[in-house]
Computed example of a mutant assay.
Amino acid sequence: MRSIWVGELRENAHVEGVFLVSDVEVKTARDGSAYVRMKLQDRTGAVEAIRWRASDFEQQAARTSDYLRITGRVDTYQGRLQVTLDHLAPVTEGVDPRDFLPVAPRPVEEMGRELGSHIRRVRNARVRQLLEMATGDTEVGRMFREAPAAVRVHHAYLGGLLEHTLSVVKMAEAVASHYGDLNRDLLIAGAVLHDIGKTREYVWSRRIAHSDAGLLMGHIPQGVLIANELIDAIPGFEEDWRMLLTHIIVSHHGSLEYGSPRVPMFPEAVAIHYIEDLDSKMHLMRREMAISAARGEAGRWTAHVKWLDRALFLGVPPEDWDEDGATAMLPGDEQDPGRRSFFTGEEE
């Protein structure tokens, strides 16, 4: 059991424990002594840290170690918490990566059961078997449930790939219902498999990072390989289905500019492209807005968001906001304490 999590840190608190370390910089102070800046992280968040007058051993430990055992105290620097370190040493064993990497807010087991309920409704038996192999009690399925969906951008935490996939599947259900002439089985299968290559694109035993294969090939070619390996193990799988699912995987980024060697060429492929892009952008926007609120930033705009190349407006009113500025209490509102507040600035 950890003594303290990053999310529990408060000013003037004493800190002692093991943390994942990143963004290490060794610099020289005005008096000529060396100091080390770094980021300390666990699954609840990250905090800046500094070690003044760092010894050669401490500099080397910070540069080369994934985990450090530290002692220090929490203070405030430029309005943010910072840990001033008294001691640091490398840690090479006895750590559980799940303590240090961010995890999905919803339990993986719960999301897996919900995804399974959609898969069980797939009518084509061989396609259903393929999806069960990709997400169930197999090596691919285990990695699918654990994997992040990204290193930094959207759903960048353990279970993030499952969370993103489930969201895309649920939107695919809505698309199938709205456009009744589309093939539901193909939509659901494409939604489940579109990012399956991310199980090989990333590694997450110590930190979330790209694998060698991820850097060399990316997740789209990897997804084609995985899907076809699974298909090869299913006797009698129809070649037209193999072709259609492969096309959805290779086209789901929409264009060559964004990494797809083919543009979507039938309606179900177009739908998967747009809804998976929608889910990633909505997740990113909501995260940036939440970060802005958590920092207590005043005003009606976030800072510039690098991944979207824009700032985000925070002044959209809640759904039940009427013309007089009053909110109507609707059935179930009393059970919804998480309703977000959009008006963060002063009244004009």
Results as ranks from 00 to 15, higher is better:
H154D: 01
H155G: 01
H155R: 08
H155K: 02
Y157G: 07
L158R: 06
L161A: 09
L161T: 12
L161S: 04
L162P: 01
E163L: 02
E163N: 04
H164D: 02
V168W: 02
V168A: 00
K170R: 11
M171G: 02
A172W: 01
A176V: 13
S177N: 09
H178R: 07
G180T: 14
G180L: 11
G180R: 14
D181K: 12
L182S: 02
L182I: 03
D185L: 07
D185F: 10
L186G: 03
L186T: 07
L187I: 08
A189I: 11
V192L: 05
L193C: 06
L193V: 15
L193A: 08
L193P: 08
I196S: 05
T199F: 08
V203T: 15
V203E: 12
S205Q: 10
S205E: 14
R206G: 08
R207S: 10
D212V: 15
D212E: 12
A213M: 14
A213W: 12
A213F: 10
A213V: 15
G214H: 05
G214D: 04
L215A: 10
M217V: 07
Q222R: 09
V224D: 04
E229T: 13
E229S: 15
I231T: 01
I231L: 03
D232E: 10
E238Q: 08
E238W: 11
D240I: 13
D240R: 12
D240S: 04
R242Q: 06
R242H: 06
R242V: 02
M243I: 04
L245M: 06
H247G: 07
H252S: 07
S255D: 09
L256D: 12
L256H: 11
E257T: 14
Y258H: 09
R262E: 14
R262G: 05
V263S: 09
F266G: 05
F266D: 01
P267T: 08
E268P: 01
A269E: 00
